[in-house]
Computed example of a mutant assay.
Amino acid sequence: MTEVIVPVKETFEDENPSLRLVTIQSKPGTELADLDGGSLDAVVSTVDLHTFLQRSAETGTAVDGDAFREVPVGTNETVIFLNDSVKIKKLSRKQLKGIFTGRITNWKKLGGPNRRVVVVWSPAADAENEAFIGKVLDGEQVVSTFCQVASVEEMRAKVLETPGAIGIGPSALVSRGVRVPGSLTVAASIMLITKGEPSPKVQKLLDLLNDVAFLR
């Protein structure tokens, strides 16, 4: 949403006065059922259709996979957000794994200040979290004592205001005051899923995304 939908919302509504572009956070596992039932026009996520179908089956809301279509609409890059009090220029994959799994609890161990590590985490960003956990943490879970926030926007705000804080989020949220160390990024394709072929109003959105070059 942050990478491709939010940036075009105003333009989309200006070009289509009769339409509104409304975004909601779905409960994991219910997305395709909501799409199948008509309460959503499209699902946008870094989770692909195959994985969504698996989740639907696991939550008891299985749907006909042949009824859906997916198209790539951009790329999400997950980066590291650091509070400005942590003057560290680079974090390796091994160090990130130690931080986010709770093995490293003080920045002094990494050459930083003698300050407690505060992991800020948004469980709602499940697709982004899943990719980070798989590719950086080797499937291990995030430390249970993380500071929980409701969204990636709140993650950025919490990291900004909390000495010693670290979090992850889309590169589109990088702003003044946030340190982004030279660390690996986790890139994932952003997919737009519809029931059947895109409706005319969803096609208008796809055309706009193509015009602003989010499509690769």
Score class of each variant (00 low, 15 high):
Val44Trp: 13
Ser45Ala: 11
Ser45Gly: 09
Thr46Ile: 15
Val47His: 03
Leu49Cys: 04
Leu49Trp: 04
Leu49Met: 05
Thr51Val: 11
Thr51Gln: 14
Phe52Asn: 03
Gln54Tyr: 04
Ala57Asn: 02
Thr59Val: 14
Thr59Tyr: 11
Thr59Gln: 13
Thr61Met: 09
Ala62Gly: 01
Ala62Gln: 03
Asp64Ile: 05
Asp64Cys: 05
Gly65Tyr: 00
Gly65His: 08
Ala67Leu: 13
Ala67Asn: 13
Ala67Glu: 14
Ala67Phe: 05
Phe68Ala: 02
Val73Gly: 07
Val73Leu: 14
Asn76Ser: 11
Asn76Val: 00
Asn76Ile: 00
Glu77Val: 03
Leu82Thr: 02
Asn83Gln: 11
Asp84Pro: 01
Val86Arg: 02
Ile88Phe: 03
Ile88Pro: 03
Leu91Ala: 08
Ser92Pro: 05
Ser92Gly: 10
Arg93Pro: 01
Gln95Pro: 04
Gln95Trp: 08
Gln95Leu: 12
Gln95Tyr: 08
Leu96Tyr: 01
Gly98Ile: 10
Phe100Pro: 01
Gly102Trp: 08
Gly102Asp: 11
Arg103Asp: 10
Arg103Glu: 11
Ile104His: 07
Thr105Pro: 01
Thr105Gly: 07
Asn106Glu: 12
Trp107Glu: 07
Lys109Tyr: 09
Gly111Trp: 04
Gly111Tyr: 01
Gly111Arg: 04
Gly112Pro: 02
Pro113Thr: 00
Asn114Glu: 14
Val119Gln: 09
Trp121Asp: 06
Ala124Pro: 02
Asn129Asp: 06
Gly134Met: 12
Gly134Arg: 07
Lys135Phe: 00
Lys135Leu: 05
Val136Gly: 00
Asp138Cys: 08
Gly139Leu: 08
Gln141His: 08
Gln141Asp: 10
Val142Thr: 02
Val142Glu: 02
Val143Phe: 08
Ser144His: 13
Cys147Arg: 11
Ala150Leu: 13
Ser151Asn: 05
Val152Asn: 15
Glu153Lys: 15
Glu153His: 15
Glu154Met: 14
Met155His: 04
Arg156Met: 09
Lys158Pro: 03
Glu161Val: 12
Thr162Cys: 10
Thr162Ser: 13
Pro163Gln: 14
Ala165Trp: 05
Ala165Gln: 08
Gly169Tyr: 02
Pro170Arg: 06
Pro170Trp: 00
Ala172Leu: 09
Leu173Trp: 06
Leu173His: 08
Gly177Val: 12
Val180Phe: 02
Val180Thr: 15
